[in-house]
Amino acid sequence: MFEDLRDLYQEVIFDHNRNPRNFHVMENYDRMVEGFNPLCGDRLTLFLKLDGETITDASFQGSGCAISTASVSLMTEIIKGKTQAEAEELFHTFHKITTGKSEELQLEAVGKLAVLAGVREFPARVKCATLAWHTLDAALKNEQQSISTE
């Protein structure tokens, strides 16, 4: 059963859904942005701590499906220590692998995030995976208001 879903729901995703990393409110954050997907009600708050150009810490709060929770959990792990420009670059690459627009999938460029590439086959679920990154994008651009996938 659920053979068709093996690419979408990989064990890493279940793991991050059960035990999300960096799942807490951050004290003394530099950036805080809310992300919202009005279609499904997924809601997350992303906190960033910055040291100049470098993201020194990231955490989140909120509730969402397994895909969106795993995506934001993985994101907070991977962006720590990256410069803002590197994080933006990762966002664009991630966007490409999840929307399938890239001719050659740059899976190695996104490391662990590659487990989310399976959403390409599930158009209704792409936004679950990208909500975290759109929220990060808004945070890096220092847009204060809530962002929405719609």
Binding site: F2, L5, L8, S63, C65, A66, I67, F122
Partner: peptide
């Protein structure tokens, strides 16, 4: 602990 969206996708596969 299972989000409705995950339920929807999983049931669709059936």
């Amino acid at each position: 602990r299972i989000h409705p969206h995950d339920i929807g996708t999983m049931l669709d596969s059936l």
